Simulated assay, not measured.
Amino acid sequence: MIRIMTQSDFQRFWPTFKAVIEQQETYAFDPDMSQQAAYALWCEKVDCAYVMVEGDEILGSYYLKANAMGPSNHICNCGYMVTTQARGKGVARTLCEHSQNEAKARGYLAMQFNSVVASNQVAVQLWQRLGYQIIGTIPKAYRHPRLGFTDSHIMYKWLD
Protein backbone atom coordinates (compact mmCIF):
# COMPACT_ATOMS: atom_id res chain seq x y z
CA MET A 1 0.00 0.00 0.00
CA ILE A 2 1.24 3.47 -0.89
CA ARG A 3 -0.14 6.45 1.03
CA ILE A 4 0.72 9.99 2.06
CA MET A 5 3.62 9.98 4.52
CA THR A 6 2.85 11.23 8.03
CA GLN A 7 5.29 12.67 10.54
CA SER A 8 5.02 9.40 12.47
CA ASP A 9 5.89 7.46 9.30
CA PHE A 10 8.93 9.65 8.79
CA GLN A 11 10.09 9.02 12.35
CA ARG A 12 9.96 5.28 11.61
CA PHE A 13 11.67 5.86 8.22
CA TRP A 14 14.39 8.06 9.72
CA PRO A 15 16.92 5.20 10.32
CA THR A 16 16.80 4.37 6.59
CA PHE A 17 17.04 8.01 5.56
CA LYS A 18 19.96 8.60 7.93
CA ALA A 19 21.81 5.47 6.75
CA VAL A 20 21.42 6.48 3.09
CA ILE A 21 22.76 10.00 3.58
CA GLU A 22 25.58 8.82 5.84
CA GLN A 23 26.74 6.32 3.19
CA GLN A 24 27.16 9.26 0.78
CA GLU A 25 26.78 7.00 -2.26
CA THR A 26 23.53 8.24 -3.82
CA TYR A 27 22.25 11.52 -2.33
CA ALA A 28 23.93 14.92 -2.19
CA PHE A 29 22.42 15.59 1.22
CA ASP A 30 24.44 16.67 4.25
CA PRO A 31 25.33 13.42 6.06
CA ASP A 32 25.00 15.25 9.39
CA MET A 33 21.46 16.46 8.64
CA SER A 34 19.15 16.39 11.66
CA GLN A 35 15.91 14.45 11.65
CA GLN A 36 13.99 17.74 11.78
CA ALA A 37 15.84 19.14 8.76
CA ALA A 38 15.37 15.87 6.89
CA TYR A 39 11.63 15.88 7.59
CA ALA A 40 11.35 19.45 6.32
CA LEU A 41 13.31 18.57 3.17
CA TRP A 42 11.47 15.31 2.40
CA CYS A 43 7.95 16.10 3.59
CA GLU A 44 7.36 19.85 3.98
CA LYS A 45 9.24 21.62 1.17
CA VAL A 46 7.59 19.42 -1.46
CA ASP A 47 4.19 18.98 -3.08
CA CYS A 48 3.75 15.61 -1.39
CA ALA A 49 5.61 12.68 0.16
CA TYR A 50 4.43 9.09 0.04
CA VAL A 51 5.37 5.97 1.93
CA MET A 52 4.99 2.33 0.86
CA VAL A 53 4.00 0.01 3.67
CA GLU A 54 3.30 -3.67 4.06
CA GLY A 55 1.49 -4.31 7.31
CA ASP A 56 3.45 -2.36 9.91
CA GLU A 57 6.67 -2.37 7.87
CA ILE A 58 7.83 0.66 5.89
CA LEU A 59 9.39 -0.42 2.59
CA GLY A 60 10.24 2.92 0.99
CA SER A 61 9.27 6.49 0.34
CA TYR A 62 9.34 9.23 -2.27
CA TYR A 63 8.75 12.96 -2.51
CA LEU A 64 7.37 14.92 -5.47
CA LYS A 65 7.97 18.61 -6.11
CA ALA A 66 8.30 21.11 -8.92
CA ASN A 67 11.76 21.03 -10.46
CA ALA A 68 11.64 24.73 -11.33
CA MET A 69 9.29 27.71 -11.18
CA GLY A 70 7.33 29.82 -13.65
CA PRO A 71 7.52 28.70 -17.27
CA SER A 72 9.28 25.46 -16.26
CA ASN A 73 6.91 24.44 -13.48
CA HIS A 74 5.40 21.70 -15.64
CA ILE A 75 8.47 19.55 -14.89
CA CYS A 76 8.63 17.80 -11.53
CA ASN A 77 11.40 16.18 -9.54
CA CYS A 78 11.28 13.16 -7.26
CA GLY A 79 13.55 11.42 -4.80
CA TYR A 80 13.20 7.81 -3.70
CA MET A 81 14.59 5.77 -0.81
CA VAL A 82 14.02 2.09 -0.12
CA THR A 83 14.77 0.30 3.13
CA THR A 84 17.63 -2.19 3.10
CA GLN A 85 15.35 -5.18 3.69
CA ALA A 86 13.06 -4.19 0.79
CA ARG A 87 15.76 -3.65 -1.87
CA GLY A 88 15.61 -5.87 -4.93
CA LYS A 89 11.89 -6.54 -4.50
CA GLY A 90 10.46 -4.01 -6.96
CA VAL A 91 9.73 -1.31 -4.39
CA ALA A 92 11.62 1.45 -6.24
CA ARG A 93 9.86 0.54 -9.50
CA THR A 94 6.46 0.61 -7.78
CA LEU A 95 7.22 3.95 -6.12
CA CYS A 96 8.42 5.46 -9.40
CA GLU A 97 5.33 4.28 -11.28
CA HIS A 98 3.12 5.68 -8.50
CA SER A 99 5.02 8.99 -8.58
CA GLN A 100 4.50 9.31 -12.33
CA ASN A 101 0.75 8.84 -11.93
CA GLU A 102 0.68 11.29 -9.03
CA ALA A 103 2.71 13.79 -11.05
CA LYS A 104 0.27 13.60 -13.98
CA ALA A 105 -2.68 13.95 -11.59
CA ARG A 106 -1.05 17.14 -10.24
CA GLY A 107 -0.64 18.55 -13.75
CA TYR A 108 3.04 17.84 -14.35
CA LEU A 109 4.01 16.90 -17.89
CA ALA A 110 7.57 15.68 -17.34
CA MET A 111 9.84 14.36 -14.60
CA GLN A 112 13.53 15.13 -14.23
CA PHE A 113 16.13 13.63 -11.91
CA ASN A 114 18.82 16.27 -11.49
CA SER A 115 21.65 14.12 -10.17
CA VAL A 116 21.66 10.34 -10.50
CA VAL A 117 25.11 9.24 -9.41
CA ALA A 118 26.56 7.30 -12.35
CA SER A 119 28.00 4.59 -10.09
CA ASN A 120 24.46 3.83 -8.87
CA GLN A 121 23.90 1.49 -11.81
CA VAL A 122 20.87 -0.19 -10.23
CA ALA A 123 19.02 3.14 -10.24
CA VAL A 124 20.31 4.27 -13.64
CA GLN A 125 19.22 1.01 -15.28
CA LEU A 126 15.83 1.00 -13.54
CA TRP A 127 15.07 4.55 -14.59
CA GLN A 128 16.08 3.72 -18.16
CA ARG A 129 13.79 0.66 -18.17
CA LEU A 130 10.99 2.99 -17.04
CA GLY A 131 11.59 5.30 -20.00
CA TYR A 132 13.94 7.93 -18.58
CA GLN A 133 16.74 9.14 -20.80
CA ILE A 134 20.13 10.45 -19.78
CA ILE A 135 20.02 13.96 -21.22
CA GLY A 136 23.29 15.10 -19.75
CA THR A 137 26.20 13.99 -17.63
CA ILE A 138 27.97 16.27 -15.19
CA PRO A 139 31.62 15.18 -14.97
CA LYS A 140 32.97 14.60 -11.48
CA ALA A 141 29.83 16.02 -9.89
CA TYR A 142 29.76 13.73 -6.87
CA ARG A 143 32.42 12.92 -4.27
CA HIS A 144 31.88 9.21 -3.69
CA PRO A 145 33.49 7.92 -0.47
CA ARG A 146 35.10 4.89 -2.19
CA LEU A 147 35.28 5.85 -5.87
CA GLY A 148 36.32 9.48 -5.58
CA PHE A 149 34.90 12.00 -8.03
CA THR A 150 32.08 10.35 -9.96
CA ASP A 151 29.84 11.61 -12.75
CA SER A 152 26.16 12.34 -12.22
CA HIS A 153 23.44 12.01 -14.82
CA ILE A 154 20.48 14.27 -15.49
CA MET A 155 17.61 11.95 -16.42
CA TYR A 156 14.31 13.02 -17.97
CA LYS A 157 10.98 11.59 -19.05
CA TRP A 158 8.03 13.26 -20.78
CA LEU A 159 4.98 11.92 -18.93
CA ASP A 160 2.07 12.93 -21.16
Rank of each mutant, 00 (worst) to 15 (best):
N101H: 09
M33R: 13
S61D: 01
P71R: 15
L126V: 13
S115H: 02
H74M: 10
I134Y: 02
H144V: 12
A40F: 04
G55K: 08
I4H: 08
R146H: 08
Y132H: 07
M81H: 01
L59M: 13
C43E: 04
L41G: 01
S119W: 02
W14Q: 05
V117A: 04
P31H: 12
C78S: 10
L159Y: 05
K65M: 13
K65F: 05
C43V: 06
C43Q: 02
I135G: 03
A68C: 06
R106Y: 09
A118S: 13
L41A: 08
V91L: 01
P139T: 12
G79Q: 04
D47V: 07
H144R: 09
G55E: 09
R129C: 13
T16A: 15
A123L: 09
A118I: 11
S99H: 01
M69F: 15
P139E: 15
I4C: 05
Q112W: 03
M1P: 06
A37R: 02
D32T: 15
Q85A: 08
Y108M: 13
Y39K: 00
A28S: 12
Y142H: 10
T16E: 14
L59C: 08
T150Y: 05
A86L: 03
D30M: 10
Q128C: 08
T26G: 02
A92L: 04
H153K: 03
A49K: 04
Q7C: 01
C48Y: 04
Q121E: 15
M5G: 00
T94Q: 03
I134W: 02
K89E: 06
C43Y: 00
D56M: 11
Y80L: 10
N73P: 03
H98N: 08
Y108R: 12
K140E: 14
A92P: 01
N101F: 07
A105D: 10
G55V: 11
P15R: 13
K45C: 06
F149A: 14
I21L: 15
G88I: 08
Y132V: 15
A141R: 05
A66D: 07
N101R: 11
T26H: 03
Y39C: 00
V82T: 11
A86T: 07
H153C: 06
R93T: 09
P139L: 11
A118K: 01
M1I: 10
S119E: 09
E44G: 04
G90A: 04
E102M: 02
Q23A: 15
I4T: 15
C43F: 05
L159V: 14
Q85K: 06
F29E: 07
V117H: 02
S61F: 02
V82F: 02
R143V: 15
V116E: 03
T83P: 00
S8C: 01
G70S: 12
V122M: 11
D30S: 05
E25R: 09
D32H: 11
Y132L: 14
M33W: 10
A37Y: 05
S152I: 06
K18R: 15
Q85W: 00
K157S: 08
Y27R: 11
L109Y: 12
A40Y: 04
M1G: 10
M111C: 11
E57M: 07
T137D: 02
A66E: 10
G88K: 05
